[in-house]
Structures are given as structure tokens and as C-alpha cells.
Design a binder for these strands. Structure first.
Lengths: 260, 260
DNA sequence: AGCATTCTCTGACTAAAGTCAGAGAATCGC
DNA sequence: GCGATTCTCTGACTTTAGTCAGAGAATGCT
């Protein structure tokens, strides 16, 4: 039943009831009853949160932890009952094929859409992007020294901001800055490390190009740092040609452009 | 709901209600209500069977066929929604990986057990085996000219009969004939064409050897025809050595034996 | 301070997918 | 011919997994 799933989702550290509810997508009334039933079985303990008296914290009791371990064990048993009749080679092939299916279904679940660059999710993406630049550039990265791409500059009609989401969670972004008298600029291309290699960067780039073309852009250009090798590979494979420096971005080593 | 599943399982040719029920594993009362609901929607027509007035035949009406096609279309749509965001290469990889998972899970669902060689399922397997020999041997195959391996000879303690089943359906067999003064003989190795290449032959052979050893056999031997190349490969790979003719089976070209 | 909002809980209700027992009609086995 | 079995149907009941409306307490906003 759903109680097992809930027990499992609580985790060994416990959590707030509201976060549990939103993670499992449960109705508040339903969640309340499920948790009370777990409490009656002495599998969990509910306590009011210290900070906010409305919020309830839920933790597994010792019995709850035992039960959770038992659930894991039974899941393992099912897995073994599938693997048991197979040879070692077949097991490896099964595990590999399932991982491949999982990867590709994950890839296909990533949705890309225009979003407002000023939302907290969008700002979170951009922070991740800056953080990654800071660790990868030899000299670190300070966004105030770099050419600007503010939320206003990336909001239509000045520009646009694309976000990639996996089951609701932001996992990538990319943006355009339109200019009246010069080519459209590509900015803020970032893909979360966990889902790299699934073609999300390629999809973001293709979608940005499609939308740039829709806005009448003939040429897209961008600058990038030599440490961002995957990005540079992607640009080259997507038809971008290296061109002479066209701006004075202090962190850039390469300038690319593509005629749409 | 389950009605769609039922509608789909009826098939375009219709079927008997009892076979539908056993295929879907439905309770008779529940099935009755589901089918009546489909009948009320004019998706199926129920008629008494000509032969047996207890049995009811179910057929899709024209509306039912349309509905079934619509169900297929919607399933296709879901499949497309998964494939749409992927590149052609990713699609090929997804389809391949899913087929691999399916193959390996099928392999792992095959259960091998000792069964009575006189049941109709066992006789069916042996007929399939004879049928295959008849088409593959240059001179055809007439079991009455071949060395016997009757149900009695393959029943413990004279011998034993293993059957491989996939979700209840027989898909392979293999047998042993024990002898007081000569090596145990291996007979009736057959695997249904649909599930070849999944390692079922190898498992049957390993299980026969294990049980032979359990009965105290030190050596297993067998004869086979040159046209049965997969079987010969399997025997060689499993450690069987070709030996001189040890019986006068008219259909045999090769004689093998393995010391356990 | 006071109104809106958030979080949780309770009670009432619902839909889907069954299970179970028993009955009636037809057929089988001897 | 007749008792046992098979097939189907009906009515009563259950379980699972919820939804919905509203209430109460705590907190946030201004």
C-alpha cells in the first residue's frame, strides 16, 4: 500500500510533513490519515516544528527504521529473483540495458520552455552556472566584471530565457539577448551535471536558434572560456564557427558565430 | 479502467468468456459485470456457444473494433510523446535497450521443473520436438524407428522429465534415462523457437546434469543428428566430448559424453 | 492589531477494482 | 439416469486510494 511508499520517502533523517506531502503529491487530508496510521503502528513519531508551530516534523521510530530496512530487503529480494536465473553476462546486460532505458527516459522527460528569468528557479540556475564558472575558470568568476545579462535584458522582447525542467525541477537554462543593430547573443547556457550527456544542451541550443530565427535573427553569436570544453564541442558540432573577438568580455577566450 | 484492457484482450476474432477470464485472471462475478458494462456500451456482443450452452462467446461489435483501434492509437501517442524529444540515434538506442530488457526478463521468467512426462503439456512439447526433427532431418523423422524414451522410461526412478515454462506455457523440455549398468542418457532436449538464444537450453542441460549427479550418475551421454547445430554447439561448450557410436540410433550422426 | 495565508486535521464522501457465497442452467462421467 | 462438475450470473460486501469542504491554530504582512 501507499504507506510503505510514504515510510520510505520519509527517509532516515525525518522531514517536515509539508515537504513530504508535496514530494508525494498527497492531499492534505489523505496525508494526515496515512501518517496517523503509521503513528498508530508506532513506525513514526510526529512532533511540532521548533520554528513554526503549524508545521509538523516526522521521524521514523526505531521500529520504523527496522520496517524500512525490511522494505529495502524485500525489494532486493524481488530484484534477485529476476537476476537469479540469469548468467553473469546476462545480468550485466540486463543492468546495462535498464540503466540505458532509464537514462533515455530521463532525457525524454526533460521539458524546455520560455520562463521568466527573475523567478527564484531561474535565479537558482544562473547561480549554479556562475558557481560552475567560478570553479572551472583559472581566475575564478565574478559576475560583476562580466558583460551583463540581467533579468530585464533576458525578458521578451529584449531577449528570452529558456529553462529545462526534469519533473518540475530546474536542470538547465539558456538565454538570448536581441540587438537592433547587431547579431543576437547567446548567454547563460548551463546544464546540471547530473543530466549531462543526455542531449539537453543540444536541445536548448536548437530551441534558442529556432526562437532567434522566429524573431528575425540571421546570425547568433557567443563568447566562451577555453575551460568549457563540452560547450565548445557542442557549438562546433552545431555549426558555429570561431570568429574574431567581437566584444571585450574579460572571461572569454573564444568567440563563435552561426549563420541561421 | 480494466474495461479497456478487457476490450483489448478479446481480440478482433472474439473468444470464449471463460478463456478471456482465465487469461486476465478475473473473478467470474467481476468478469460478468465488466462484460455486461461493455455490452451496455454496445462495444461487444455476447452469444451462447454453439457446442456448449453454458459457455458464452464474446465478439467486438463494429463500435468495439473502432474503440479498440482508438485505444491502440492512444497507446501509440504515449509512445511518441516519449520518443519525440529524442534524436534519431537516441530513439534507436531506447528501442534497442527496451527490447534487450524485455528479452532478458523473458529469459528470467522461464521456470524449469520436473514434471510428469505423460501430461498433455509434456506430450505437446515432445510432439513439437518430433515435428522439428521431421523438418530438419534430410530423411524426416519417424519416432517409432528411433530408440524409445516413453513416458514410463522418463518417470522417476527410471528417468526424469524437465519442463521449461514461460508464464505457465510450456516452452522447452529435456529428459534423462537412468541405467543400472551404463551411463545416464540425455533425451528430448527441445526449446521453443520463440525463446531460443535466451540460455534456456543451457539451463535445462545444467539442471539435468545436476539431477543426474544427484542420482549418482558419473557420466552422461547422448546421440544427436548433424543438422542440430545449435544443440551440438551447446553440448561442446558445456564440456561434452565426441565419442564413438555407443548405440544404433538410426537418426544419429554424433555421440557425445561428459564426465560429471 | 487585524486580516490573509499556511499548515494540519476531521468528517463525509467517492470511484475503481475487486472478493465471496450462492444459485441456476448445461454438460460430463459412469 | 443422476450426481458431480462447469460456466455464468447476482447481490452483498471490501479494500485501496483517494477527493472535498470546512475548521482551528499559528504565522506573515502591513
Amino acid at each position: 500500500m501507499g504507506e510503505s511508499r510514504t515510510l520510505w520517502e520519509i527517509g532516515l533523517e525525518g522531514c517536515e510533513v509539508r515537504s513530504l506531502r508535496s514530494r508525494l503529491g498527497l492531499d492534505s487530508g489523505y496525508a494526515s490519515r496515512v501518517l496517523r496510521s503509521l503513528e498508530r503502528q508506532r513506525l513514526v513519531r510526529l512532533t511540532p516544528s521548533a520554528g513554526d508551530q503549524r508545521v509538523r516534523l516526522i521521524r521514523l521510530t526505531e521500529r520504523g527504521v527496522t520496517e524500512r530496512i525490511e522494505l529495502d530487503r524485500r525489494a532486493d529480494e524481488v530484484a534477485h529473483s529476476f537476476l537469479d536465473p540469469l548468467t553473469d553476462r546476462q545480468r550485466v546486460r540486463l543492468v546495462d540495458a535498464m540503466a540505458e532505458v532509464d537514462r533515455l527516459l530521463t532525457a525524454s522527460s526533460v521539458a524546455i520552455d520560455v520562463e521568466d528569468p527573475s523567478t527564484s528557479d531561474a535565479r537558482w540556475c544562473i547561480e549554479q552556472y556562475f558557481g560552475e564558472l567560478d570553479t572551472r575558470f583559472d581566475v575564478g568568476f565574478d559576475s560583476s566584471r562580466s558583460i551583463s545579462a540581467t533579468a530585464e535584458e533576458l525578458t521578451y522582447p529584449a531577449g528570452l530565457f529558456l529553462m529545462a525542467r526534469l519533473r518540475g525541477n530546474p536542470v538547465g537554462c539558456g538565454a538570448l539577448k536581441f540587438h537592433a543593430d547587431s547579431p543576437t547573443e547567446l548567454k547563460r547556457m548551463w546544464v546540471a551535471r547530473e543530466i549531462r550527456g543526455l542531449g539537453v544542451g543540444r536541445r536548448l541550443l536548437a530551441e534558442l536558434e529556432r526562437r532567434a530565427a522566429e524573431e528575425g535573427a540571421r546570425v547568433i553569436r557567443l563568447e566562451t572560456n577555453r575551460s568549457l570544453t563540452e560547450a565548445i564541442d557542442l557549438y562546433r558540432k552545431s555549426g558555429y564557427q570561431e570568429v574574431a573577438r567581437f566584444n571585450n568580455e574579460p572571461y572569454a577566450d573564444h568567440w563563435f558565430e552561426k549563420v541561421l
